[in-house]
């Protein structure tokens, strides 16, 4: 029994030692990037496909876990009588189910490769809906703050050890108050209604981002 414990401890020490001696550890890697987003299948009545732009930084915590911290500015039409603007600021955790593709340890020339991930996170959302044609007494609009959660799948296409293109598909559910528009097609009258309380309204977001690793904040490589 003592021998078994001894062997287990020895294996544990060896593993710990192997971890310590790694020259390349991705933890602490900071990336900076830009992104463009398409908003699809919006729950809002008559809302059409939206498009957006934003930025993000990415901070990696381990071989298998990365995080995205993003800002998006998305606009979309509600038929031809109103338009909607969304600002998203939030974060997502990226989990790499296949993380044995260790590009940090490559000895030969780098070859582009895909690295798929599962993603989940949270964001704060500010939405504003404005009428296309303002009434004579001034612009007509409604706005709200809400919170949202999102989850999805994606993949990096790593074109160099430092540069990657990432494609993500995720569903974002907005929690809390929401605004509804009511439009009378015969009279052209438009009105906004704010509904308080929990409601699950969401949309599919497809995001393409370009990222470059700019710094390693901790876990410096050994020489």
């Amino acid at each position: 029994m003592q021998r078994i414990f001894l062997v287990l401890i020895l294996i544990g020490v060896l593993q710990a030692n192997a971890q310590d001696n790694r020259r390349y550890n991705p933890a602490g890697m900071l990336s900076l990037g830009g992104r463009t987003t398409v908003s699809l299948f919006n729950d809002h009545e008559n809302e059409m496909t939206g498009s957006g732009v934003g930025g993000q930084f990415r901070l990696r915590f381990s071989d298998a876990v990365n995080t995205d911290w993003f800002f998006d500015y998305i606009t979309s039409d509600i038929l031809n009588y109103a338009h909607r603007t969304d600002y998203h600021i939030g974060w997502s955790v990226l989990f790499y189910p296949i993380n044995n593709l260790d590009y940090f340890r490559q000895k030969e020339e780098f070859k582009p490769k895909f690295r798929p991930y599962i993603l989940a996170g949270h964001c704060f959302d500010y939405s504003k809906i404005e009428a296309k044609v303002s009434p004579l007494d001034g612009p007509m609009s409604a706005e709200r703050w809400s919170s949202a959660v999102q989850a999805g799948l994606g993949t990096h296409l790593e074109l160099s050890p430092r540069f990657d293109i990432s494609l993500t598909g995720q569903y974002m559910i907005h929690l809390g108050n929401h605004i509804e528009t009511e439009y009378d097609f015969t009279t052209g009258a438009l009105s906004f209604h704010e509904h308080k309380g929990a409601s699950l309204a969401g949309h599919v977001l497809v995001t393409l981002s370009l990222n470059y690793k700019i710094a390693k904040l901790w876990g410096f490589t050994r020489r």
């Binding site: 498009s51 606009t75 979309s76 039409d77 031809n80 338009h83 603007t85 404005e130 296309k132 044609v133």
Partner: peptide, 12 residues
């Protein structure tokens, strides 16, 4: 390049 101007009195 592509994009949409939404702040218009008619369709975007």
């Amino acid at each position: 390049s592509n994009g949409w101007i939404r702040k218009t009195p008619l369709t975007s």
